[in-house]
Design a protein around this nucleic acid. Structure first.
Lengths: 188, 188
DNA sequence: GTCTATAATCAGATAGAC
DNA sequence: GTCTATCTGATTATAGAC
């Protein structure tokens, strides 16, 4: 069965990761947060890497599904923007990329996911730009996608630092632009 | 005097940071890399935070100076792009932001630097867009700057993961665009 | 199947030797 | 001023109790 204890540990790990960064995610602190004994971490997850991977996969699945559903739901550009503009999600990504930088097993998993996520988003943005009459010469879909993703990453990164000058202006600008381009989009 | 040993430790720390991420930067590993004893780290730097800050400052000073010099030197857009497009520099930033996420003293220092760096870049890009006749309504300078920075960060981030699909296309696109806009720029 | 006691390792930091 | 021996505590992981 899917143990309740196991889920508690995963939840605690995810919270710690977002609040204090991956280096704070130790078996002791996870357990303390969940009100459990540290050794339980190693009962439910063989190594800390296994735990990190499970935390990552839970989110990754949700994100890929959201993009794939989102394509049909609303204005595709807006859906992609809002998905990327999720600050929590972006911080989550940053932590895992930093973590991946020195853990091989995790790097491979994240790279595979990043490619899957990228492909799903690319389909959506390619269709959107195409239907708007934007040619590949004017703005290749991959460039638009990387710009959007990059923009949201930097906003999240700076936000975490407490540096937010120009952020509102930037969000407003992008949302206004998307509003003009996406026919069936609505203000939030 | 500026001890040679001290400089060796800083160099080793910076290398470790870039190659294996900030979590690999421990007193033991720094010393091993420099061929010195771990305790020397604590002789030359009171705490590990002090060491991290010193590593950070060395680079930060260079970067700010480069922007300020760069404004006058060549096409401002191109100068800013090349500075941001430096993969090593971007990875350096990512590591420090992740580190800052759970070390207060470091966060403050990085935030102050980020603001200083941002201001210097903003002066340059504002002048550039202005001289090109781009109005604030068409593209606010801060948006252009965040887009450029975000783009380079995501390129560096993905590159570290081994995910590079679309990167060449994107770099070529941006450089071509800058080439058209910046009158006195040259191909690399 | 669930959890605990304990080992083995490694971290940052300090007090003190040269 | 330069470096080392050593302390204290934290971390991952395993072997074994219930």
């Amino acid at each position: 069965m899917d143990s309740k204890t196991r889920a508690q540990l995963l939840d605690a790990a995810e919270l710690l990761l977002l609040e204090e960064g991956y280096a704070a995610v130790t078996s002791r602190r996870i357990a303390a947060r969940a009100g459990l004994k540290p050794q339980l971490v190693h009962y439910y997850f063989r190594t800390m890497d296994d735990l990190f991977l499970e935390v990552f996969r839970r989110r990754a699945e949700v994100n890929v599904a959201r993009v794939e559903e989102g394509i049909a739901t609303g204005g595709p550009l807006q859906v992609l923007w809002q998905l990327n503009a999720d600050l929590e999600g972006a911080r989550f990504n940053i932590e895992f990329v930093a973590l991946a930088n020195h853990r091989k097993a995790i790097r491979n998993e994240i790279a595979r996911y990043a490619e899957r996520f990228r492909a799903a988003q690319l389909v959506a943005i390619t269709a959107a730009l195409d239907s708007l009459g934007v040619t590949n010469d004017q703005l290749p879909p991959i460039v638009a996608l990387l710009m959007m993703t990059g923009l949201t990453q930097i906003l999240a990164l700076e936000d975490a630092l407490g540096v937010t000058a120009g952020h509102d202006t930037t969000r407003a600008f992008v949302e206004q632009m998307i509003g003009r381009l996406d026919p069936n989009s609505v203000d939030t």
